[in-house]
């Protein structure tokens, strides 16, 4: 983790430390904090690594991940749970990180696309998404891939309808749904035994 200095706003400062204490990233909460803000320390496992974040527990996890922890694979589309671009896995369960308060994730395991892309399962989805030309502008894809993972880990051989339900919270404004559905169906066959 490289050392970066966040820009200065009014409000509380969030400090992020790796468990190994290799480096310290200092960042600032993305929005002006209310005077009554109670900074708390939240420790969780992020992409397999213990992290501790300090700040307002009511901050959106989305902002914490993107702005403080610099995981920009977590996309910000709507900030109100309508688009799925900020999808992550919280203890293996698909959630919209804009709908999760930072204080909620203490003691949990958070997986973002940055962590997921090191897995064998990702490699299968990566290959099938590429072959089906399922990626157009790409903005929805991190969320789509994690929605696919959540679906396949619960149901390794989904029907087309189940795939469509599985990604029903993930909007693709390029409207390339058919290719995405095909890519997930391909992955369910080609990744036999992985899920």
């Amino acid at each position: 983790m490289s050392k970066t200095q966040g820009s200065s706003h009014d409000g509380a400062t969030a400090a992020v430390m790796s468990a190994a204490n290799e480096a310290v990233t200092t960042a600032t909460l993305p929005t002006t904090a209310a005077p009554s803000v109670r900074a708390v320390s939240v420790s969780f496992v992020l992409n397999g690594r213990e992290v501790t974040w300090e700040g307002d527990p009511s901050a959106k996890l989305l902002d914490v991940l993107r702005d403080d922890l610099r995981l920009t694979g977590v996309k910000c589309g709507c900030r109100e749970g309508e688009c799925g671009a900020c999808s992550i896995l919280l203890d293996g369960v698909l959630v919209n990180s804009c709908m999760v308060a930072a204080g909620r994730v203490g003691g949990t395991e958070v997986t973002t696309i940055e962590g997921y892309c090191t897995t064998e399962r990702f490699k299968v989805l990566d290959a099938t998404f590429a072959r089906r030309s399922a990626v157009q502008c790409g903005y929805c894809i991190p969320g789509m891939v994690l929605a696919a993972e959540a679906l396949l880990s619960a149901n390794p051989h989904p029907t087309e309808e189940e795939v469509r339900t599985g990604i029903s919270g993930n909007l693709c404004r390029c409207t390339g749904y058919n290719a995405i559905v095909d890519a997930i169906l391909d992955a369910s066959k080609e990744g036999e035994g992985l899920w």
């Binding site: 909460l29 929005t31 002006t32 904090a33 209310a34 009554s36 803000v37 109670r38 307002d56 527990p57 009511s58 901050a59 959106k60 109100e80 749970g81 919209n96 804009c98 709908m99 999760v100 308060a101 204080g103 909620r104």
Partner: peptide, 22 residues
Amino acid sequence: PYAGGTDLMVDEALGRPFVFLH
């Protein structure tokens, strides 16, 4: 009280004193 949070977090919730129930 913060149960699932999905209604609460639609609003910009920064500074709200949540008690997490999970």
